[in-house]
Simulated assay, not measured.
Amino acid sequence: MTRAVQITFDCADPAGLAPFWAEALGYRVQDPPAGFPSWEAALEAMNVPPEHRNDASAVVDPDGVGPRLFFQKVPEGKQVKNRVHLDVRAAPGLDGDARMKALEEEADRLVALGAARVQRHEPAPPLAAGHIVMTDPEGNEFCLD
């Protein structure tokens, strides 16, 4: 039996990080529950105190194919390198210079959204196609692959 997967990010600002990942992946911030025009209205109706209205957020694949990303507020900051990270497939089917050019263009786009570049790894055939290590606005590592 296969199971659906949700990827969870511990973070300081769920409402700030969710839109970054929605933009990075072509996802969208999850809609509020049916009958509510906004999350603020839904949380108000659920009697969630204002200080807890940024405790969680989520983004979803508009095509319903990719996993849901869930962002939960935690009190501690990031302290060490991630043991698991996302590879954002920004250059599928491309090799060599064309691949690295596509990765560089995507890196520039994501930096404009708040990401940071960490390191570029050049292609080293036959096993390494080249990639760029990045961090999201809260310092979580990911790769452009």
Rank of each mutant, 00 (worst) to 15 (best):
A116T: 11
M1S: 09
G35I: 15
G93E: 04
Q79S: 05
E105R: 15
K73W: 14
A58M: 12
F70M: 13
A24N: 01
L86Q: 04
Y27G: 00
A90M: 01
A41R: 15
E40C: 04
R117I: 08
D87P: 05
D61I: 05
C143H: 02
A58E: 06
P125E: 08
V65I: 13
L86Y: 06
G77Q: 11
Q6F: 12
E23Y: 04
D10T: 06
L127C: 00
V60E: 10
H85S: 03
W21E: 05
P92D: 04
V133H: 07
R99N: 03
E40I: 15
L113P: 05
V59W: 01
W39H: 15
E106S: 08
P37H: 14
E122W: 05
E141T: 11
R99G: 00
P123C: 01
L144W: 03
Y27L: 05
V111L: 07
P137D: 04
A90P: 01
S57I: 06
A56T: 07
G77H: 09
A112F: 10
P62H: 13
H52M: 12
F71Y: 05
S57R: 15
A34T: 14
D13M: 09
V74T: 12
D13R: 15
Y27W: 14
P62K: 10
G16M: 13
P125S: 01
A24H: 02
A98T: 06
A12E: 10
H121A: 00
A102P: 01
G16N: 08
P37I: 11
R120H: 08
R53K: 13
L113A: 08
D136Q: 05
A12F: 08
A129H: 11
A42D: 10
A91C: 03
N47H: 10
W39R: 07
E51G: 00
I7L: 14
F20S: 04
P50D: 08
L86C: 03
R89V: 12
R3E: 09
A112C: 03
P92W: 14
D87L: 07
D55K: 09
W21F: 12
V133N: 02
P19T: 10
Q30R: 14
P33F: 09
R28G: 00
M134V: 04
A15V: 09
V60C: 03
P75W: 12
G66R: 07
I132P: 00
P126I: 13
G64A: 03
M46E: 08
N54Y: 09
A115I: 04
L113T: 09
L94F: 07
G114I: 02
D63F: 14
A18D: 02
G64S: 05
D145Q: 07
A41K: 15
D61Q: 11
P125T: 05
R28K: 12
F70H: 08
V80T: 11
T2Q: 10
V118G: 00
G139Q: 06
A24G: 02
A45E: 09
E104I: 11
L17C: 06
L103S: 02
V5L: 15
E105Q: 14
A45S: 12
M46A: 08
E51D: 07
E76L: 07
E106P: 07
N140I: 07
F70Y: 13
P92I: 11
E51P: 01
W39K: 06
A128C: 02
G93N: 05
E105S: 07
V84T: 12
G96Q: 07
P19N: 07
A107C: 11
E106T: 15
V111C: 06
F36V: 08
P137V: 06
L17N: 02
A18S: 07
L94C: 03
L86E: 03
F70E: 06
W39M: 14
